[in-house]
Design a binder for these strands. Structure first.
Ligand SMILES: [Mn+2]
Ligand SMILES: [Mn+2]
Ligand SMILES: [Mn+2]
Ligand SMILES: [Mn+2]
Lengths: 218, 218
DNA sequence: TGAAATATTTAGATTCGTCTAAAAAATGGT
DNA sequence: ACCATTTTTTAGACGAATCTAAATATTTCA
């Protein structure tokens, strides 16, 4: 089996590079709050185990096998998040840290049964797609709120950024999954938007916030 | 916080010595599948952290604080076992290894919510009492099946031994929690018993098996 | 009471994952 | 093409948790 550290590197590699993208040593170090030299060491080990394609100075990417491992960890993470929100009544801004731990529990029987218990959910509490057993993942095709034009309407279907601060902010605006948004106005100067939420109040939302919200246009 | 290894040592200390009993280095090494020298090292570290009372060559026991940590891990282990059996439909012989992992997840919020979700169970799937939030544990006062006399009757309330092999064996005999036992006969020679189970078949059960089954006499 | 057996601790090494500091390779501008 | 900056790797060390082998303490019992 892979160690906890190895799993976290693979997951970060997936987050930064996806299925095939090359990831730089420094980017990975940043993502994992570690040092570049540690990353180099680990890349050698993972290359040894055939989980990554690594050429010194050229960056690194997941191998087919490494991708499978990474996507399975993501599957576990997201299923546990659904459990925490749907069954244990956690808020969507409280579950990530706990899921970071639960995603490393080793038992495929457990995950299959959890999946069934949750009624085979397709998305996690942040709108992120849950990879299926074979590792297929639906990819967000949606645009972000920042891409909506004036007078256009949409439904909130996901968030890009998962920080507690951001999720809290959205909660306060009622910008939760399923909320309806209508662009009253776009401000040229700072790219902020005036958005009517659920046919009620209009809020002014910064570009920083609008570009992290996935929208399905309607 | 305490590391995974530290938590496992504390839990083993609780299992072997309970609230105050002195535990020997070798016994702990045996329980944890490690070497005596490793135990000595760890005892020094835990003594440093005031989690155990340790005097070289004299054995070791949990401190008040160490006991609290240990009992909390046991609480988590047993609550997760209830979850696995009650909600995910695992069998009682399949849950221990998974709970060994889940018991180390760090989040008191999680455990409180899990407890509530499970409706505050008092016993785990093996009949072991679940410590409450303040660390109080009901202690098995029950006798074992081996202590029942001829023609006495009782209800199965727990198991001492948790191996898959033993639990499977009990399953096959229908000797699950709540089953009624009636001692038809005791064999002097090897201390085995002939036991009628749920007013149906009579099975011959070895002393090895009867002394690991908790019974409430009726 | 004094071996002998048993239990425990110490000494020294190993693996994993990390770090800092220094060396080397790649990149980019003039 | 050269030098400066940035990026990456190497070298060497460290803490945690483990091990083996040797030393030491305790117990047992003839
Ligand atoms: Mn998450
Ligand atoms: Mn999520
Ligand atoms: Mn168990
Ligand atoms: Mn149990």
């Amino acid at each position: 089996m892979n160690s906890l550290a190895e799993e976290n590197y693979l997951k970060a590699l997936y987050k930064l590079g996806g299925k095939s993208g090359d990831v730089q040593t420094n980017a990975l170090a940043e993502e994992l709050n570690t040092k570049a030299s540690s990353v180099t060491d680990m890349m050698k080990k993972l290359a040894e185990k055939k989980l990554v394609n690594y050429e010194p100075y050229k960056g690194v990417s997941l191998s087919k096998e490494g991708f499978k491992v990474a996507i399975y960890i993501v599957r576990k993470h997201r299923l546990w998040e659904v459990f925490l929100v749907e069954k244990l009544a956690f808020k969507w801004d409280e579950v990530h840290e706990i899921a970071e731990q639960l995603e490393h529990i080793q038992s495929s029987e457990l995950i299959e049964k959890l999946d069934e218990f949750l009624d085979f959910p397709k998305f996690d509490p942040h709108g992120d797609p849950i990879p299926d057993k074979d590792g297929s993942v639906y990819q967000h095709l949606e645009i972000t709120l920042s891409q909506l034009e004036k007078k256009e309407k949409g439904i909130v279907v996901g968030v890009k950024e998962h920080s507690k601060a951001y999720l809290n902010y959205l909660d306060n605006l009622n910008l939760v999954l399923g909320a309806e948004v209508f662009v009253e106005d776009k401000v040229e100067f700072d790219s902020s938007m005036k958005v009517r939420i659920n046919k009620n109040d209009v809020a002014t939302i910064s570009n920083q916030a609008t570009k992290n919200l996935y929208i399905k246009k309607i």
